[in-house]
Design a protein around this nucleic acid. Structure first.
Length: 426
DNA sequence: TCTGGGGTCCTAGGACCC
DNA sequence: TCTGGGGTCCTAGGACCC
């Protein structure tokens, strides 16, 4: 039987801010989504004050003011860099690791059965904290689903002190803990599934575990069937060490302020198209189908609503920013209707293929591949070294009135020379 | 006034084929 | 008047994740 550990960083974005701003320690702090729209990370103090996950900021203005809560805009370059550092530490504890998200990794502990895994978990926890400044919790179990659950116990129940190995618990204790676990706390059960399970008389994790898998398959399909096995400790979901190439790439943003202006929309689409093309090249893929969508605000019900999407096929597979921009602009032109206040647009790259596997005959004969590749590589290199958008399409605009709000952005402490913190020793 | 962004997997149903 | 069965591929939509 495999053994998995899930290592998850506590309030990751808030913790990243705290590493470089220790003044925030013990102070209620929240981090917001892009556009400063919703709360996505909360310190323990903020949770205690009643801040909810994904709550819109305008609903909690008073609460922020009343308790002098510290507010930060999302600083993704900082979080991505801190995430890499944490993974580098975790890699010292296992040869097999899956980066599951920016703040979570699955570790295979198959080769460490001879150790006391709870102790090992504490070593992981201590070293990540000491070397990166990030507090993490560790959950250990014989399936990914159980490791996720164990992590939740490690986080919520003080007696575990941040590390919970389900294998170290007696069956009776585990049963009680599963009975106390709401369906929604299980990995893979969301808002829709929970009430449907309740209707079948299944109310907690233990009852789901003890349901015949076949029954779940009949009612919900293979996903829930697998979940029952996973809860029984029979692993169905393997560790994925190499991140597979993305099957689609999406770049989309809500606007800082709704716009009626076609020019602004085209600028935004151009900007998103070039960001998407960068991502495409980074994973060495090519696209032959570019999707575009735009819509008005889902929340402003007084304004007339409009939502549309389309795809534009390309004659040849490509990773050329210029071709992708042209396609995105054409798509947007065809969708645009005047008289609406648009809140969001996005560009998708679909039908992705591995560039290396493509036969030369499929490339655009009017654009020699080597020339395109050299140009794109050069642009990517410049933008990596000199900062994003050092070289960019003029059609993305200079004013960028549509760009997102980030009112409370912290410095790029680890990724921009001018922002590196200065330490004074006296 | 103000509500994120980027993904995956699965299923059902239609088109089409032999 | 009668009108199979099985397979694949594609797409849209639902549900979930962080």
């Amino acid at each position: 039987m495999p053994i998995f550990a899930l290592v998850d960083c506590n309030a990751f974005y808030v913790s990243c801010e705290r590493v470089f701003n220790p003044r925030l320690t013990g102070v209620p702090t929240v981090v917001l989504t892009n556009n400063d729209g919703c709360v996505i990370a909360r310190s323990d103090e903020a949770k205690a004050l009643g801040f909810k996950m994904a709550e819109p900021v305008f609903k909690v203005r008073e609460l922020i003011k009343k308790h002098n809560v510290q507010v930060y805009s999302s600083n993704y370059p900082l979080y991505a860099d801190m995430s890499q550092r944490a993974v580098a530490v975790l890699s010292q504890f296992t040869p097999q690791l899956e980066i599951y998200s920016i703040d979570e990794s699955f570790l295979s502990l198959d080769g460490f059965r001879h150790l006391d895994l709870t102790t090992y978990g504490h070593e992981i926890r201590n070293r990540v904290l000491q070397w990166t400044g990030l507090p993490v919790c560790v959950g250990i179990g014989t399936s990914k689903t159980l490791a996720k659950l164990a992590n939740k116990f490690a986080k919520k129940r003080k007696q575990f002190d941040g590390v919970c190995d389900l294998g170290a618990l007696s069956p009776a204790t585990l049963n009680t803990m599963l009975e106390d676990t709401a369906l929604g706390d299980i990995w893979g059960i969301g808002r829709q599934l929970a009430p449907r399970l309740e209707a079948l008389g299944i109310h907690n994790a233990r009852e789901l575990r003890d349901t015949p898998p076949k029954r779940m398959r009949e009612h919900f399909g293979v996903v829930l069937e697998r979940m029952v096995y996973e809860l029984r400790g029979i692993s169905c979901l393997a560790l994925e060490e190499v991140t597979p190439a993305r099957k689609e790439i999406v770049v989309s943003r809500s606007f800082g302020k709704a716009t009626t202006d076609k020019g602004g929309l085209l600028e935004a689409a151009t900007h998103y198209a070039s960001r998407a093309a960068e991502k495409l090249r980074r994973q060495h893929s090519v696209t032959q189908l570019v999707g575009v969508f735009l819509h008005t605000s889902l929340f402003n019900t007084r304004d007339p609503q409009y939502s549309a999407s389309t795809t534009v096929s390309l004659a040849h597979p490509t990773d050329d920013t210029r071709e992708i921009i042209t396609a995105a602009q054409r798509g947007l032109e065809s969708l645009y209707r005047s008289g609406y206040r648009y809140a969001k647009t996005g560009v998708m790259l679909l039908d992705l293929q591995d560039a290396a596997n493509l036969q030369t005959a499929f490339w655009n004969p009017s654009r020699p591949r080597t020339k395109t590749t050299n140009l794109m590589n050069t642009i990517d290199k410049i933008n990596t070294q000199m900062g994003r958008n050092t070289v960019a399409s003029g059609a993305a605009g200079r004013k960028q009135a549509w760009r997102m709000r980030r009112q409370w952005l912290s410095p790029a402490y680890t990724t921009r020379w001018s922002d590196i913190p200065v330490v004074n020793a006296t």
